[in-house]
Design a protein around this nucleic acid. Structure first.
Lengths: 164, 164
DNA sequence: GTTCCTGCAAAGAGTTTGCATTGTG
DNA sequence: CACAATGCAAACTCTTTGCAGGAAC
């Protein structure tokens, strides 16, 4: 699905959600949704806040957090907790189910699909007599190249957890 | 492996680590290791702190955090980030590789083994030309019973993420 | 005696909340 | 013009840090 198609459908979903609950159509909400769907892949709240600032959009942190909660509630955004307590968001409409691989050298995130996980999840659920709802599968990996091609900054991942 | 055997081996590991690096054998370190290996399964730093307090062990938060970092560094404790940003620890010596299932009704945690994950991780690593190091696989599930048998407190898991 | 460790309190990061103001419906 | 949303700042939680006193070696 092309980005602008996903954005259009996301806009419709947001419209419907706003209408159904009698909420307000504020410019901030549309701007944040647009930004997420066209400019950001995996991001945290503060990155989104500063990204908006750099575009000249002065939207407060409170509104950023409120809107992320709203978009999460209506299924347009997903929230993840990655290693070392990083809370990241990503858009969820128009993207197939996927999991994440994180480079421990630079923190960059790759997505992959592993349909085999479905049956595993079902089997575990049966074993515990629980009803599986969703899963998170995160692979932490090193680049095989001596110099990580994604390296951008000092890693937040090699402080304590991965030493001998 | 019995708990006290695991504790003994953990003590030896800690001894060796302390000796190798010229660190100090403080009572706080032994007490925290003992507590983790005999009394706690999955816990956060604050739970450990209060658990020690209730036993009459007044060990400061700073020392609790320092010691958790030390024990993580020498492989006796593992740190996890679960949904909604919970940072939890568990002892790692004498426990086979496992993953976690979290009850969204009460937050209780079950462990399970899924050896099928190894090959999946390897395959994904090959695809991205990266060297997988470790993984986290978390299943979030509901109890099938209408009343969760593990229910202890109001869930921290049904606030935003799991509503319609 | 030297150096490391502890405990306290303050600082810091990330997120949430209270409240006056703004703006949608 | 009612009431929801915004923006700001303060509060809050979890974790880290600085420093003085105390313990290990």
């Amino acid at each position: 699905m092309h980005a602008h198609v996903a954005l259009e459908r996301a806009m419709e979903t947001l419209e419907a959600y706003i209408t159904a609950r009698g909420l307000r159509r504020t410019e901030e909400r549309y701007e944040i949704l647009r930004t997420i769907y066209t400019e950001l892949a995996h991001f945290d709240a503060d990155t989104l806040y500063h990204h908006l600032l750099e575009k000249g959009q002065h939207i407060s942190r409170a509104t950023v957090y409120n809107t992320l909660e709203l978009l999460t509630a209506c299924g347009l955004v997903k929230r993840y907790s990655f290693g070392e307590g990083r809370t990241l968001y990503e858009r969820s409409l128009g993207r197939r189910q996927h999991d994440h691989l994180i480079c421990m050298d630079c923190g960059s995130i790759q997505e992959f699909c592993a349909p085999e996980l479905g049956p595993i999840m079902e089997g575990v659920g049966r074993f515990f007599h629980m009803k599986p709802f969703r899963h998170e599968f995160i692979i932490y990996a090193y680049c095989q190249q001596s110099e990580c091609p994604n390296r951008k900054k000092s890693s937040t991942f090699d402080k304590n957890e991965f030493q001998s």
